[in-house]
Amino acid sequence: MTSAGKMFDAVMHLLDRQVLDVDKMPVTVVDDVELSDIPSGRIPPGTPAPVITNLLAGSVLGTRMFGGRPPSSRLNRIRWRHVAELGTALRLNIRGDQLDVLWTERWVRNRIIGRIPGGRHDPE
């Protein structure tokens, strides 16, 4: 699948798949993808086809289910160039800690789970 020239269908092979970071830590599910802009209205012949610029996560899931769309500034993006591999899960080439998508995970970790005794140790 990673080999150049391969074809894939976005809904079937990309959307709703698990995203793992470079250390195989789960990051999110692909809730939607963002494409490079195309001319609004008529498309002049010879216009280059759009490419996938970002994976999207978070609030966009709600709008995908129930319609409408969040403002562009509110989208949680993972850049396509941070995607290393496409399979039954997507692998990134960076660590999830760097991504905005994981702020709720960090918040729950720092405010709640990390404060309960034993939360930072391996199970016995």
């Binding site: 995970e105 729950v108 789970i113 990390g114 939360g119 930072r120």
Partner: peptide, 9 residues
């Protein structure tokens, strides 16, 4: 560890 799966816990 629980801190590595905070929302799960």
């Amino acid at each position: 560890r629980p801190v590595r799966a905070a929302r799960f816990h």
